[in-house]
Design a binder for these strands. Structure first.
Lengths: 258, 258
DNA sequence: CGCAGTCTTGAGACAGATCAACTCACGTGG
DNA sequence: CCACGTGAGTTGATCTGTCTCAAGACTGCG
C-alpha cells in the first residue's frame, strides 16, 4: 500500500543506524580502517520507519539491502497476475540483513516487497554501493556473503520441504524454526509470541488458513502445543515437533483424530 | 554412490581449469593484478571428472564452490531419514558456479550432493580459501556475490511456485525455464534435449513421475509440446506455456481432457 | 534380438482446498 | 469500565487434484 516513510528526526532512525553499526563485525579487522568503513556504510544507509502493515516497495532500478534494526517483517511476492494470495518467501527479524532484488532478468513478475509485521526500524542500502564500500573490509564483506549463502541454504531447505512434506510436517517445522529464531530455543519447551497471522503462516508454507488452524488443533490435541489468544504459543516438546517435521508423512496417531 | 574421481592427466582437467579461467571477469579490473588472482584461484581449484550418475559428496568440514566446466548436474538433498525420494534442489549446467554447503548449524540433515546427469568436468574449490583470494579482486568477488544473490532469488522464486502452483503450472514453468537455459530461447518455438529423467523432473517440482507424465501428455494433446524418445522436446508456443506457468490454477480447457 | 529400466496409462484412495457457518479475541466507543 | 462490532480464527461438510498401486508399452542398451 503505502511507500516508505521519509526519514524522521525522532529517536527511531538514529537508533536504527546505531543498531546496524553494532551488528558490524568490528572486532575482526584493523581498528581505524574498520571504523572508517562503518562510517561510510552508515553514510549511505537511509533509515526508515515502517508502521505495522506498511510495505517497503523495491526500487525498480537498483537492488537493495535492508537491515532490520527493530521489529519483524515478511518478504512477500505476488503469485501470478490475479492471484488473491501472496506467497510469503521469508520472515525476518531484528538483526537480519535482507536482500530485496528489483527483478531478475527474464522474470517479468518478481517485485518482492518487505511488509512490516510490527512497527519496524530499518536501514535501506543501495546494494551496489554497499558492496563497493564493504569490499574495503574483508570481515564485513565476508559477513555479508556468508549471510547470503546461509539465506540461500535456508531457502533451499525450505524449498525441499515445500515439495514433499505434509501439512503437519510443515507446521511442526515452522514452529521449531520460530522457536529457534524468536526464543533462541532448540530443545525442550519454550514459549513465544507469533508476530504473524495464520494467513501469513499459510502463505509461507503453501497451505490455507483452515489447514493451518486444523494442524495446530491436532498438535494441541496431541499435547505438543498450547495456544492463548491469537499469537501466544507454548511448545512442550520441541524434539518431538522436530521429529514430526523431519518426516515426509505425518506420524500415525498424530494426524488421525484418535 | 561413488565419490569423486582423482584428478586425471587427460585433457579433461586442463580443459576444466581453462574454462573456469575464461569465465572470470578479467576485463573488469587492472590487468596484471587480475591475472595473478586468476592464477591463485586456479591453483587451489581441484579439477575432477564425474561420470554420468556419479555423485560429488560434500566435504563434511568445509563448504565448497564447484564450477561446472562441461556437462550438467543436479543438486539433490535427501528428504528425511528414510524417504525414498531425493528432492532435487536445482539443475546446473556448464558455466554455473554451485555452492555446496556442508551443513548449516542446527540443521542435522542437509548433506547436499551434486550428481552428474551427463559426464561432467568440474573444478572444486574450498569456499573459504576461494573467497579469501577473491577478496583481492573486487570484480571477481562481485561476480561471485551477484551469482549467489541471483541463485537466492531463483530459489525463492521456485519456492514460491512450489507453494501454490498446480502440477500443470509447474511443468509448464519447468519447460519454459529449460528452454531459456538449454536453448537460450524465451519466446516463440524451440527444441532441445532434456538431460534429466522424469523422476528428476518430478523430484525437482515436488511431483510424482506419473503426474509429470500425465501433464506432459496433456500439453501434448493441447498441441503445445511434442516429444520424441525420452529426452527430445519441441515447444511450439513458449508464451502460452509461460502464461500457464504464471497462473495459480491451470487454464480451463488445458487441464481437462477436452 | 531380447532384456531391463523408463515411461505411459488406468482405477481407486486420500490429503488438502474450497465453501459455509460459527466462535472468539481484540480494539473501539459509549 | 464494560458493551459492542469487526475481523481473525476455528470447525464442519464436501469436492478436487494429486498420490498410490497396478498393469502395460516403449526406449535404449547390451
Amino acid at each position: 500500500m503505502a511507500t516508505i516513510s521519509p526519514p524522521q528526526p525522532d529517536t527511531g532512525p538514529d537508533t536504527a543506524i546505531a543498531a546496524f553499526r553494532a551488528a558490524l563485525p568490528l572486532d575482526a579487522g584493523s581498528g581505524s580502517g574498520d571504523a572508517l568503513i562503518a562510517d561510510r556504510l552508515c553514510a549511505i544507509g537511509r533509515p526508515a520507519h515502517l508502521a505495522k502493515g506498511e510495505a517497503l516497495l523495491p526500487d525498480p532500478r537498483e537492488d537493495r539491502l535492508v537491515f532490520i534494526a527493530a521489529g519483524c517483517a515478511k518478504l512477500v511476492a505476488p503469485s501470478g497476475q490475479n492471484a488473491p494470495v501472496n506467497q510469503v518467501l521469508a520472515f525476518h527479524f531484528a538483526g537480519d540483513l535482507v536482500s530485496v532484488q528489483r527483478r531478475s532478468p527474464g522474470e517479468p513478475r518478481g517485485d518482492f516487497r518487505l511488509i512490516a509485521l510490527s512497527p519496524c526500524e530499518v536501514v535501506i542500502f543501495p546494494a551496489d554501493r554497499f558492496l563497493d564500500i564493504a569490499q574495503g573490509d574483508p570481515a564485513v564483506l565476508r559477513a555479508v556473503l556468508t549471510r547470503s549463502l546461509q539465506a540461500l541454504h535456508r531457502s533451499r531447505t525450505r524449498m525441499m520441504q515445500m515439495g514433499h512434506k505434509s501439512a503437519g510436517a510443515r507446521i511442526a517445522d515452522f514452529l521449531v524454526s520460530m522457536a529457534e529464531r524468536l526464543a533462541d530455543c532448540t530443545a525442550g519447551a519454550c514459549a513465544f509470541s507469533l508476530p504473524m497471522s495464520r494467513r501469513d503462516i499459510g502463505d509461507s508454507l503453501g497451505l490455507t488458513i483452515e489447514t493451518v488452524s486444523r494442524q495446530l488443533t491436532e498438535l494441541r490435541d496431541a499435547g505438543l502445543v498450547c495456544t492463548e489468544g491469537r499469537s501466544k504459543v507454548w511448545l512442550s516438546d520441541i524434539a518431538t515437533l522436530a521429529r514430526i517435521a523431519g518426516r515426509t508423512h505425518c506420524q500415525p496417531g498424530l494426524t488421525s483424530k484418535n
